[in-house]
Design a protein around this nucleic acid. Structure first.
Lengths: 121, 121
DNA sequence: TTGACATATTCCTATATGGGAATGTATTGT
DNA sequence: ACAATACATTCCCATATAGGAATATGTCAA
């Protein structure tokens, strides 16, 4: 079985670095495909294909303006990603806390010498 | 050119749903490969391979304890993902605000009827 | 209508993948 | 040393890519 489709969800869609760049670029302001091509220095078909993927998972919205098609980031679709990563927030806070505590201990008790670093059972 | 390697960065690594499940499971408590196999109902080689990917990008840490190898989530490695999604936070707040304002307007001026929905230039 | 501009799609190809099965490696208990 | 346990790796394969080139579609302007 190959990898899941890039259009299967937002997680797969944003795995591609260029698509992340496009999302960032379009979050500032609505832009045409041509703008993206020029600004990010990508081939036009490539951009269209990336936009297709982003559109399929709801990460961008499009609307025609004459010959052009204007795209904009749909930030709402990024929330699930944010929420998922956020569930780990408390853990990295714990880790930072542990590191901080360790540093303080090491600093305070420079006399006690050894006793730990790895506590085998 | 195919998709970037799953081990190229955390974004690619977490694109796989099972890997996300493993990360969540391991964030609670350090666990052996066997625990993961039983709890998430996956084949053992599959788990080992997923852990390999997660380890390569620093999302998990491992240590031997006798015959077992205990894995734990390295939450720190998830921060870049969190930070990236966070850059869009203000935008979805804006969008929610717009929606809210629109709803209020629609509610207050039920007499004014039309004039917008799409404003062609 | 015709041409020019803007974007989308199709075709092609090398490549990384995830699952299953089989096998390899490390560690413990006897 | 040997068997058993716990993981890791390898091999095989169907499949979804991403990029490049070519082509199709859509829209406007004269």
């Amino acid at each position: 079985m190959p990898r899941a489709s890039t259009t299967s969800d937002a997680f797969n869609a944003i795995a591609e670095p260029r698509r992340r760049e496009i999302l960032t670029y379009l979050s500032i302001q609505e832009r045409s495909v041509g703008d993206i091509v020029l600004t990010l220095c990508l081939a036009q078909p490539s951009v269209s294909k990336h936009l297709r993927v982003l559109r399929d998972v709801g990460l961008v919205r499009a609307r025609r303006r004459g010959r052009r098609v204007l795209y904009r980031t749909n930030a709402e679709a990024i929330r699930p990603l944010h929420d998922w990563t956020r569930t780990f927030e408390r853990f990295w806070q714990h880790q930072l806390l542990r590191i901080k505590v360790r540093a303080e201990e090491a600093n305070e008790s420079r006399a006690v010498s050894s006793e730990n670093t790895e506590k085998p059972k």
